[in-house]
């Protein structure tokens, strides 16, 4: 069995566990410990129905992990939350993602405004070809955040556990850092726009094991102030860091669908669905 972190937050998940199609959902927006409420989300790429009928809640100040086999739509769901799918011309999103009572995937919503509240860290570190300092100050600048920039840069780098390694070379190009440092720089830069949700799309999959552990420790640290949703291929990682786990699988015609949402420990020790059990015990996937 996979080792599960015995963090105290496990077991206190507020969202009711939901099974696809069968769960009874709390009325959206009624629970203030829920920051994102996804309701019957469907995503299409052209004629391809990529994700069907996904519903789950993301509890505030916790880490929610999305796991499942390749192509099951977990990244697609993640990218709906901050409207990154808008960048794909053929993508179409139906359903609701409620955030502070507003449906972020609705027509009248400005994706730029959404992204200013819901930050994202990508699979491959993608620092801008600017100095370390500018990598962080840029986001604040374009978002109209005023104040002491030096202080902001330092705070963000400290929060991302990178300050001690880079404090003497803030003028150097961000691309000169190692992969793990670049990824922490990307996390720091996301924090600079002061989001309350941080989405992470396999943030450690391009990193070595030591850098991976650093990122995981960092996530645990950030959870106090931010809500984190992470997509990961690595089940041990989901088990180590997350409070709630959402398991996706492939349905008919390769449509991604949600199988099970549970507190992480429960999902890994006592899965309710046979498909979840097959996946986490390595019989499938």
């Amino acid at each position: 069995m996979i080792g599960v972190d015995s963090g105290s937050s496990i077991g206190t998940v507020t969202a009711a566990p939901v099974s696809a199609g069968t769960g009874v959902l709390p009325a959206p927006g009624t629970d203030e410990k829920v920051i994102l409420s996804i309701r019957d989300l469907n995503v299409y790429y052209g004629n391809f129905h990529a994700v069907g009928g996904v519903s789950f809640d993301v509890p505030k100040n916790q880490i929610t992990a999305l796991i499942g086999p390749s192509g099951c739509g977990k990244s697609t769901v993640l990218r709906c939350i901050n409207r990154m799918n808008d960048l794909i011309p053929s993508a179409r999103v139906e359903g609701e993602i409620l955030y502070h009572g507003q449906n972020v995937v609705a027509k009248g919503i400005d994706p730029v405004a959404v992204r200013r509240r819901i930050g994202m860290v990508f699979q491959k570190p993608n620092p801008f070809p600017k100095s370390i300092y500018e990598n962080i100050s840029w986001g604040a600048k374009i978002n109209g955040i005023k104040g002491n920039m030096d202080e902001l840069v330092e705070t963000c780098l400290r929060k991302a556990a990178l300050w001690d390694e880079v404090k003497d070379k803030l003028k150097e190009n961000g691309l000169a850092l190692s992969g793990g440092q670049q990824q922490r720089l990307c996390i720091a830069r996301t924090l600079a726009i002061n989001p309350d949700v941080v989405l992470m799309d396999e943030p450690a999959s391009a990193l070595d094991p030591i850098s991976t552990l650093k990122i995981e420790d960092l996530m645990r640290e950030l959870e106090r102030q931010y809500t984190i949703v992470i997509v990961t291929h690595n089940m041990q990682q989901a088990a180590r860091v997350s409070d709630q786990t959402v398991f996706f699988s492939l349905g008919e015609q390769r449509m991604g669908m949600l199988v099970e949402v549970s507190p992480t420990r429960e999902l890994f020790t006592n899965p309710r669905d046979q498909r979840t059990e097959d996946y986490i015990t390595g019989r499938f996937g």
């Binding site: 993608n126 986001g139 978002n143």
Partner: peptide, 27 residues
């Protein structure tokens, strides 16, 4: 310029104009 860099810009809440001039052109 890699698509990932543009996505990084958009994910920071940048507009298309800001991504074009401040991310893509310098890169």
């Amino acid at each position: 310029v890699p698509r990932a860099l543009r996505e990084g810009g958009y994910a920071m809440g940048a507009t298309k104009h800001e991504v074009s001039w401040q991310v893509v052109v310098p890169a």
